[in-house]
Design a binder for these strands. Sequence first.
DNA 1: CATGCAAGTGAACACTGTTTACAATATGTG
DNA 2: CACATATTGTAAACAGTGTTCACTTGCATG
Lengths: 216, 216
Amino acid sequence: MTAALDARPDTRTRLIKVTRQLLARSETEPVTMRLVARASGITPGAIYRHFKSRDELIEQVVVDTAARLQADLWQALAKFPVASYERIAELGRIYVDFARKHPSDYAMLFGHGGDPKRKLRTAPFWKSIEALEHCVRDCIEAGVFAPADAKLVALFLWGRLHGLITLYLQFNFSDEFPEFGAAGGLGAIFEATRGFVLDGLRPRSNPARQRKRAHS
Amino acid sequence: MTAALDARPDTRTRLIKVTRQLLARSETEPVTMRLVARASGITPGAIYRHFKSRDELIEQVVVDTAARLQADLWQALAKFPVASYERIAELGRIYVDFARKHPSDYAMLFGHGGDPKRKLRTAPFWKSIEALEHCVRDCIEAGVFAPADAKLVALFLWGRLHGLITLYLQFNFSDEFPEFGAAGGLGAIFEATRGFVLDGLRPRSNPARQRKRAHS
DNA sequence: CATGCAAGTGAACACTGTTTACAATATGTG
DNA sequence: CACATATTGTAAACAGTGTTCACTTGCATG
């Protein structure tokens, strides 16, 4: 038989699954090889039949995670008109949702990504940036955005997204930004600062065209 | 005598100094307590007379680092006119320079900051954000920026800064962004995207006022 | 059946942060 | 000065880590 019926469906994928669950659960205590082994009904040494090292196991959890995020992103893209900032904002929303629901997974997309100074293209989240760039290009061509280097705009938008997410995941905003302290606070921050991205910080020259700004 | 002449000027500060040097040097191998001890001419156990744990030692290195960064920032502020984007850009430049010259120190400002969900105000870099907010407020009052919540703008600017820095420290841009692959690439990215921050992504309504955009 | 290979075991190894019992050294006090 | 008392260091141990290695399984195939 090529596949066991249901008992142990391929140890390797089971290890990845168990590891991610453990990483998601325990915030404080670290996820050790012995812990993964015990939770998988296996001996620590046996893990090394499937992964060269702990780092490689974690890395595989990360690419698995990145694939899920990517799937979410593409699915979301289908629901919005092609050339609209709403579509880009939705990308950000998915990203934020993902980070909020799986903070340890998100943190892992960075940090323990492997050797330092690896190529950007090999980053697990690189496809997300590409999707963003794609949407930006659409907007530029449709005149929704001013002419610019789409890749650079994507980098700009993505950097802003990532910076706020990492900050938000690590610190408690409720004292300094009480209006963003609640559960959906991260999304609210992006909505509140959306105007900065679209219209810039400089005053609009033509007051008639002026949009309503962040006010509260 | 209150202070020894030069031999061992207070073990505690020496430990912090040695630890930061070790952290800065070795990229790959971790900085262990035994390593710190040996480099300080001391026994591992003795470190615990000065720091409760390894985490506390690292934390103290971080606040030490943050103080240096803060000093750089204030010094830089004095050299630019009060209400100008140049002044804010200079803040970013200092930040970027610091991150580039001391990548391990910068990475430590985050990541190993202590318990998760600590208050934002207790972050070692919080004073930097406050300085930024101060400059933003000046700009808004002088009409250089459009009316907005200064604190929110500071968060926006700081997030963008931090996101790109962490990305740049971890990955090699030279393939995907060859124009930013060189040494000063990070600063170049901020210059290239400055227009997005000032004028926004949306097309200016009045073409006459239109500024030159990113072109290459 | 025999062979060979993948998967798992259990004990070890070298390493980590940390603690503990103990010695030395400085510091103030009668 | 002599004594008591912190302070600062040492050496060795402890529990826990990732990882390796000789050794058993179980199973598919020649």
